[in-house]
């Protein structure tokens, strides 16, 4: 990455300080997916697989236009198709590009125990570094979007990199490049948010989508992939987009207080026995022969 634009600001499972901690670039990168102009053509799926050099995989017909039920370790970008009947009788065929959301507060990174297996760059990209990945899949546990996927053969976890390699070289991600309708945009978070808000406002004012809105969930500190939804009051209908995603509370508990509590109690344990030794010392271990005989006799032996 030398010479590029990426600077690490957070590292998973890392004990010491992080050089780029708390830094932010002039702009954070962001991908905007406007579901209201997505036609589900899957060009992004193909671009993703081809750019990342993964092989084609056999699929089977599953009563849907969706390529496969879920993203896979080597298939990071999937359009989810949903036929949805609204309460008012209107019908929608929803298509949502599903991929890593690149959370500002990434649950995967939080959960990951392996030093350097997950990093967050100062531009917001959350990237897996497979050479440090230990395959524990804690990231799977930590992710509220069900994104990291495990490769059984290499025992490593993979997900969308937001084309950190391309972005580092000043290019847009491959999916953005391939999108024919322009429903995908890439730029700074501020710009993308402004664009998304303007589009949502336009939808509310000029179309029948009165609930149009932007999906940039606060629960994970906002994301570096944001959506414009026709109906932001019901993100679940877009292939199970969680309404209020957050790093699971239990993961926060586990990676926060419990970790310290555990460490402290171990420390106290060791200190406790040491103090005990100093205060009381070891127990008697031997007896004189005479005492043993006396003992034997007392016992009526």
């Amino acid at each position: 990455m030398a010479g590029g634009t990426l600077q690490i600001k957070a590292i998973s499972g890392h004990a010491g300080p992080v050089a780029g901690a708390n830094t932010s670039r002039d702009y954070d990168v962001c991908k905007l997916v406007d579901t209201t102009t997505c036609i589900g053509c899957k060009a992004c799926e193909v671009a993703c697989v081809e750019w990342n050099g993964y092989p084609f995989r056999p699929t089977s017909f599953d009563n849907t236009y969706q390529t496969m039920p879920n993203t896979e370790w080597n298939y990071w970008n999937l359009i989810r198709f949903d036929e949805h009947e609204n309460a008012d009788g209107t019908f929608q065929w929803l298509m949502r590009k599903d991929q890593c959301m690149h959370c500002e507060d990434p649950g995967c990174l939080k959960a990951c125990p392996a030093d350097g297996a997950i990093v967050q760059y100062s531009n917001g990209i959350v990237d897996f570094q497979q050479e440090h990945c230990i395959g524990c899949q804690y990231c799977v546990t930590g992710c509220p979007f069900d994104i990291p996927k495990f490769n059984q053969e290499t025992k490593k976890v993979f997900k969308c990199t937001l084309c950190s390699d391309r972005v580092n070289a000043g290019l847009e991600p491959a999916c953005i490049k391939s999108c024919p309708t322009g429903c995908l945009h890439f730029g700074s978070k501020d710009d993308m948010l402004a664009l998304a808000q303007a589009r949502a406002t336009q939808l509310r004012e000029h179309t029948s989508h009165r609930n149009a809105g932007v999906y940039d969930p606060e629960g994970v500190g906002g994301t570096h992939v944001i959506y414009v939804l026709h109906d932001s009051s019901n993100p679940e209908k877009y292939g199970g987009l969680p309404k209020n995603p957050r790093v699971p509370i239990l993961v926060q508990l586990w990676k926060g207080p419990l970790k310290w509590l555990g460490g402290l109690s171990m420390m106290f344990g060791v200190m406790g026995v040491a103090i005990h030794y100093l205060r009381f010392g070891p127990k008697e271990a031997e007896m004189k022969d005479a005492d043993i005989q006396k003992e034997d006799r007392n016992r009526g032996n």
């Binding site: 499972g13 297996a117 395959g135 970790k259």
Partner: peptide
């Protein structure tokens, strides 16, 4: 313990590194 806290991740390193330890 290595998996539990980064401060003891060195334990993992001395028994062959993360992937080996996790395996």
């Amino acid at each position: 313990l290595g998996f539990f806290t980064p401060y003891m991740y060195w334990l993992v390193e001395i028994v062959g590194g993360g992937p080996t330890a996790r395996f």
